[in-house]
């Protein structure tokens, strides 16, 4: 339990149902494809300590249910996330079409400065592709997102996606663009004496509401 790290980043994995969010998380943490998994009901999370640019960073990753109606439940976990993987399925245009809505949620509920990487998952199913690399990268550019096509099955680009996101956050800290001290930055110093990352009290009588920022 005595993990040492320089930073702790809170990450989100969001996107429509069946795009492979949980599988991406599993591949990143366990280094293998998750066969026989249930669909995610509510929220799951996992964590892993990685080395980025000479710093050890603990990524605490929150994986959310994708079905539209679960947003009201998962939203309360967005608060204070520093980074997000916004996932769609390259074989399903529908999941691509709903990206804008997910992005709005992330920026309004987590933080306007949240670092988002767009992941076109299921890269291994190229013959069934419905969304081209080009149009997705255009979308990413327009919305100031990073972009990778990933495969939770083969593991291709999975590690890169998380690391890229972490690296960008670190750079922003270095350049002073992000202030880890600010409340709700989703970043903590890894001092052992530090308290846990702030999470929402979902049991509160408070239905998640936009924080008004």
């Amino acid at each position: 339990m005595a993990e040492t790290y320089d930073f702790l980043f809170k990450f989100l994995v969001i996107g429509s149902a069946g795009t492979g969010k949980s599988c991406l998380l599993h591949q990143f943490i366990e280094n293998k494809f998750k066969q026989d998994s249930n669909h995610t009901i509510g929220v799951e999370f996992g964590s892993r300590v990685v080395n980025v640019g000479g710093k050890t960073v603990k990524l605490q990753i929150w994986d959310t249910a994708g079905q539209e109606r679960f947003r009201s439940v998962t939203r309360s976990y967005y608060r204070g996330a520093a980074g997000a993987l916004l996932v769609y399925d390259i074989t399903s245009r529908e999941t691509y079409n709903s990206l804008a809505a997910w992005l709005t949620d992330a920026r309004t509920l987590a933080s306007p400065n949240i670092v988002v990487i767009l992941c076109g998952n299921k890269k291994d199913l190229d013959p069934e592709r419905e969304v081209t690399f080009l149009e997705a990268s255009r979308f990413a550019q327009e919305n100031e997102l990073m972009f990778l096509e990933t495969s939770a099955l083969t593991g291709e680009n999975v590690e890169e996606a998380f690391l890229k996101c972490a690296r960008t956050i670190l750079n922003k800290i270095d350049s002073g663009e992000l202030d880890p001290e600010r409340m709700g930055s989703g970043i903590q110093y890894g001092d052992a004496s530090l308290r846990q990352l702030r999470q929402p009290r979902s049991a509160q009588a408070v239905a998640p509401q936009p924080c008004g920022c």
């Binding site: 509510g42 929220v43 309360s76 702030r198 999470q199 929402p200 009290r201 979902s202 049991a203 509160q204």
Partner: peptide, 9 residues
């Protein structure tokens, strides 16, 4: 800060 929705949903 663990609410029921984290495990009981």
């Amino acid at each position: 800060e663990i609410g029921p929705s984290l495990y009981a949903a």
